Simulated assay, not measured.
Amino acid sequence: MTGARHRPDLVFVLSMDTEEEWDWSGPFPQRDFSVANADRLPAFQAFCDGLGIRPTYFVDYAMADDPAASAQLRPIIDSGRCEVGAHLHPWANPPYYGETGEYESHVVNLPLAQTEAKLEALLERLRGAFGVVPNAFRTGRWGINGEILELLRRKGFGIDSSMYPFFRNAYFDCEQTHLQPYWPDFDEPVRPGRQRDLLEFPVTVGFNGTDPARMLARYKAVSRPALERLRLVGLSWHTRFVRKLYLSPEVTSGRDMRPLVDFALANDNPMLHMYLHSSSLIDHGTGLIEAPGAMDIIQRNIEELLAYAGTRANLTFCTLSEAALLIDHRVGVAA
């Protein structure tokens, strides 16, 4: 076995969208939020403590505004074992500007004045609930644009983590997102730019091959809507022709996440960025885990992934802000 001193270094970050739970196939809730998943956070933090993981909790307004939920989080935050980031769900965050549909649920579709007002309300609630001024931000439902990045810079944020590599929809396009941590160009946020105020930390998404351009081309070929009835995506998964993989223990098994470690190393990415939703810690909280014992499944997947990653790299466990300092010091970030 290769000695530890000969293995490459990898920073490992786990970030969690810490939010209300609801039926993702139904309408967006605007009142009477359920945040029962907060009861699982102390046990999840204890699990992370045992592995050395220092989570970053992206907390939304509904979670911070609920006294019982915030009481579960506050001792964890006060202990310094984690970081708190800001997570903006338009439907759950005042001020309100009417009903929230699919279009309005994406932050990138809101008028900037509405986004700013909601962000100010969120920051005030996080200060009131936890006494924190967050350094990291993530949109609800992913995606970011230049004017929101500029808003974040004006509000004093140093980190954004809203980019979801190899994904696009009708409202934003992250398909060509730079895979390593980088300083985004505000005119073209998927690319590195010249500004040095706001770092982008994409979550880890990749394939079961190490050439991202080649594997993306394969995936796009088999996932064309015109070919959907042929079920080529499923066939490609079973034959290993191409597998799109997510470093997320709520959707990918520990074994299936293993290739993402090799994908990161082959593409000189100094970081593994795992992500999940707090609502997945309770059974049927998101619909992403159908089997009972969701939290146990998530924890087993994390343990299995880390056991493999530890054979391939020397892991350092950080919050996002800690990772920003460490990566910048070690290797710099993409320019």
Results as ranks from 00 to 15, higher is better:
Gly98Gln: 07
Ala43His: 13
Ser15Cys: 11
Arg5Leu: 05
Ser161Asp: 06
Pro181Thr: 08
Asp65Lys: 02
Gln195Trp: 02
Met295Lys: 12
Arg74His: 07
Ser248Lys: 03
His329Asp: 14
Gly193Ile: 01
His284Cys: 04
Ala307Asp: 15
Glu19Asn: 09
Gly101Ile: 04
Arg231Val: 05
Asp187Cys: 03
Arg258Leu: 02
Gly101Gln: 09
Arg194Phe: 04
Arg218Gln: 11
Met16Asn: 06
Leu235Cys: 05
Asp197Ser: 14
Gly98Asn: 06
Ser79Asp: 14
Glu21His: 12
Arg255Trp: 08
Phe130Leu: 13
Phe317Gly: 09
Pro42Gly: 09
Ser79Met: 12
Ser279Trp: 03
Phe137Cys: 04
Ser253Gly: 15
Tyr61Cys: 01
Arg5Ser: 13
Gly156Tyr: 05
Arg31Met: 08
Ser25Val: 06
Pro94Arg: 11
Tyr103Phe: 07
His273Met: 05
Leu112Ser: 05
Glu102Asp: 08
Ala36Lys: 10
Tyr164Gln: 04
Gly101Thr: 08
Thr239Met: 05
Tyr103Lys: 02
Val205Thr: 09
His284Arg: 15
Asp296Ile: 08
Leu276Phe: 12
Arg31Ser: 10
Leu152Val: 03
Asp296Asn: 11
Phe166Gln: 04
Asp256Phe: 02
Cys48Asp: 03
Met63Glu: 01
Met163Phe: 05
Arg153Cys: 12
Pro94Phe: 12
Val251Glu: 02
Arg168Gly: 05
Leu51Trp: 09
Glu290Gln: 15
Asp211Glu: 14
Glu19Phe: 09
Thr204Glu: 07
His87Tyr: 11
Gly310Lys: 09
Gly234Arg: 13
Gln114Ser: 07
Pro95Asn: 11
Leu305Thr: 14
Leu281Arg: 01
Gly193Met: 03
Phe12Tyr: 13
Leu326Thr: 15
Glu175Val: 11
Leu232Arg: 07
Arg7His: 01
Tyr96Gln: 13
Val261Tyr: 03
Arg194Tyr: 01
Val13Phe: 02
Gly206Gln: 10
Val133Gly: 08
Ser79Glu: 14
